[in-house]
Design a protein around this nucleic acid. Sequence first.
RNA 1: GGUCCCAUCGUCUAGAGGCCUAGGACACAGCCCUUUCAAGGCUGCGGCGCGGGUUCGAAUCCCGCUGGGACCGCCA
Length: 450
Amino acid sequence: MSVTENKNVRVRFAPSPTGALHIGGGHTALFNWLWARHTGGKFILRIEDTDLVRSTKEYEQTIMSGMKWLGLDWDEGVDIGGDYGPYRQSERLDLYKKYAEQLLDEGKAYKDGEAIIFKTEPGQDISFDDIVYGRVEVNSDGLREKDSDKLKDIVIIKSDGMPTYNYAVVVDDHLMQISHVIRGEDHISNTPKQILLYRALNWEVPTFAHLPMILGRDKKKLSKRHGATSIYEYRDMGYMPDSVFNFLALLGWSAGDDKEIFTRSEAADLFELSKVARRPAVFDFDKLNYINQEHLKRLEPLTRLNMVAPFWGEAGLDVEAVKNSRGEKWLADALTLMAGRGRTAKEMAEFSDYFVSFEPVKQRWNADELDKDKLKKFYEFVFAAKDFKASELEELARKWVEENGVKMKDYAMPLRYALTGMKVSPGIFEVAEHLGREECEKRLKFFGLL
RNA sequence: GGUCCCAUCGUCUAGAGGCCUAGGACACAGCCCUUUCAAGGCUGCGGCGCGGGUUCGAAUCCCGCUGGGACCGCCA
């Protein structure tokens, strides 16, 4: 364990349930999780549902299952409780009211309409030290209204009785004894306002660590118009949780020693907040694809099968039937044969559908253009193989090719097409062995090649 | 308009004043292997935004400029 081990570390991810877990939120949650797991501290999930209009319980669930999908587990939260609950802001209204009234009594806040507003005093130095960004110099004189030189007071309780973000976050982070506030860089300019509140309440200010933003290809903050932003869209495209985790961890952080492919626990061991980068990172699909491919390669055969099988199903193939007839292991081994072909589970499923069914092969290819009689002799010779092993098939094929003075290519490719319907596949004799003599003969006969 | 932040290959990054002729990865290009590539191996292309300082020495420190971004909501 490293020197940064500290059981008193308490961090939180505090999403508002107004949409699915998106890439940016996942990134923030991930870095909080990494810090908690690295230090042996606690990771808390708090729901910030003070926007009555947009918050729903459904989104709350979606966000939680999104986090679970990513492999981020939490130690305290709405679903599992904890010593600092409730963990839903809408259930903590009395707390916000209590401290708002205190500020009112002390003359630090005033009422306007039904709202309670904290008075911003001019000339306050509200600089802070950020673990990632270093010293951030701010003076309260800079807290102005837009297009005006008027000082901006801070609304803490809205007219509907709900606390505002900047206020609730302070009350909750203090009461929940959050040690490190780890969040997106877009919050860096909210921090001084919160510091003012901490001071007015006479509370200790937590340590801040802001994370670089994630940008789209156009270098603008990642948003819906960049395409997939919800974590679940990545699952549906065939990316695996391990990969998305790995990829997100690499946005703004590096594990050192040029280590780019890692597991959650490896990342947790190596993670350091102080090593987080400041510059915003562009979301790069090419890199995600690569990382996913690497994880796909490293998966246990049965686990890989479980990742890929749904996409065969999606393509209309009866995976269950094959599992029943040839067994799960046979299918898993077929994917092992794919040896890294395919960057996503979906691609791997597309590239290997001929193992599940002959139907797609029939649809993709026909032998009309071929000199069938010539090929038949070759296949008859090769298929005389006693054990139908790849090495044996290849040996016979080579022998025949040599004796007849022809090119292997001209005979192996038609075989590849007849068995897979594709131009590309693993070694075709290996594919043949795995498919088995019976199935291969069936396919060749269908095309009139045997 | 104001405040704050950022700045190394196209992209993710390493780099804490000499280990830097700037390292790795992705992408791209080429070559090799070969029954195919979407697998594997090798090679290449490509970057410290600009200008001033400080220093014997700067990608690293300071200032300015330029360029990007975030925030300035009774959203979070």
